[in-house]
């Protein structure tokens, strides 16, 4: 089967499997969400019939129907784009997600790109000056940065850069008083300005280990025979460093970049809560805190789908970076 087609089918299967998983989590766990939700509604004084209808509208699950009917209903409404209704906000989950997703995507994508741009450039420079004081200082700084969780840096940034110096806003995704239309210069400017600290807190901490990885890759490529041969051929330093070293050193970074997108996407739940940045991470936190299961599960599903699709798209471009793309599994089985 075609490689890309197979990859695409895998995307569909993964999203379906995660949807099944959320269904199981809501429905099947003893004392799980459904039981708690019912208790919550009964405590609020609703009549039993009303409770059943509410549960049905919130979760798209009819508690009395046989399990396969429930499952079928759940998946059908998901396919139709209906994620249920949020209990705490009273809005539909789709509506909440729609307004918040772009902001989270911006944070996660900008973080990933900046982390790897920083890592590739800085790591390569460190490898070039290997053994110098600059290298030693940068390595130590990278290790220190990696030992700091991003939320700790976020708090420090808020206190120091935000409160003390007042250079950057510490909350919200844009200036609440701003009444400029969407996509005007003022709007985009304000949005960028407000996203500086959240992005900085994840980039500065996340880049630490990646810088070291890039440095290590570059050093090991520099020791390879083909680089020695290229030197002997009298090729220019520029050509050696770009075509021979950089390309081969960046390749392993690409895979780890795909892996870390998920970590940054997940990290937005904490970062957005700290910065009151209303992306889907923030709403996921709200859902978790108020035990708003439809909201929480809906956003979890959306986050996973985003990641799966993102990795799929990135995978399509992998052929551009590495021409030796694996098209199949040729290994002999033992």
């Amino acid at each position: 089967m075609n490689y890309y087609l197979r990859r695409f089918l895998r995307v569909i299967v993964t999203i379906w499997a995660v949807a099944t998983f959320t269904f199981a989590l809501i429905r099947l766990l003893p004392g799980g969400p459904l039981v708690q939700l019912r208790a919550q509604l009964i405590r609020s004084g609703a009549s039993p019939e009303r409770v059943e209808t509410l549960i049905q509208s919130y979760t798209k699950i009819q508690p009395d129907a046989p399990i396969y009917v429930q499952y079928f209903d759940y998946i059908t409404s998901l396919v139709q784009g209906d994620l249920g209704e949020s209990i705490s906000t009273g809005r539909s989950v789709g509506e909440v997600v729609g307004g918040a997703l772009p902001w989270t995507l911006w944070i996660a994508i900008a973080t990933t790109i900046l982390v790897f741009a920083l890592a590739i450039v800085w790591g390569a420079i460190m490898a070039y000056f290997e053994g110098s004081n600059f290298d030693l200082a940068s390595s130590s700084a990278s290790i220190l940065a990696a030992s700091m969780p991003f939320y700790v840096l976020a708090m420090l940034l808020i206190i120091i850069v935000g409160y003390e110096f007042g250079w950057f806003p510490t909350r919200f995704r844009i200036d609440p008083n701003l009444e400029a239309p969407v996509f005007s210069v003022a709007f985009v400017g304000s949005a960028l300005y407000h996203s500086v600290l959240p992005i900085a807190s994840m980039v500065l901490t996340g880049a630490g280990l990646q810088v070291l990885a890039m440095r290590g890759n570059s050093i090991s490529v520099l020791g390879k025979d083909f680089v020695t041969v290229a030197r002997l051929r009298g090729l220019s330093d520029r050509r050696i460093s770009i075509t021979y070293v950089a390309r081969n050193a960046i390749l392993p970074m690409y895979t780890s970049m795909l892996l870390s997108v998920g970590w940054y996407l997940g990290g937005t739940v904490i970062v957005e809560e700290i910065f009151t940045y209303r992306g889907i991470g923030y709403y996921m936190y709200e859902g978790l805190e108020s035990r708003d299961y439809p909201l929480m599960m809906g956003i979890f599903l959306i986050l996973t789908s985003t990641l799966v699709i993102g990795v799929f798209v990135a995978d399509l471009t992998y052929g551009l970076v590495d021409p030796r793309i694996q098209t199949g599994d040729q290994s002999e089985s033992f």
Partner: peptide, 16 residues
């Protein structure tokens, strides 16, 4: 397993 973002999954599990 790899394609599920770890932190949100852990949060959901922790709550449940």
């Amino acid at each position: 397993a790899m394609s599920i973002p770890g932190l949100p999954l852990v949060m959901v599990l922790a709550v449940v």
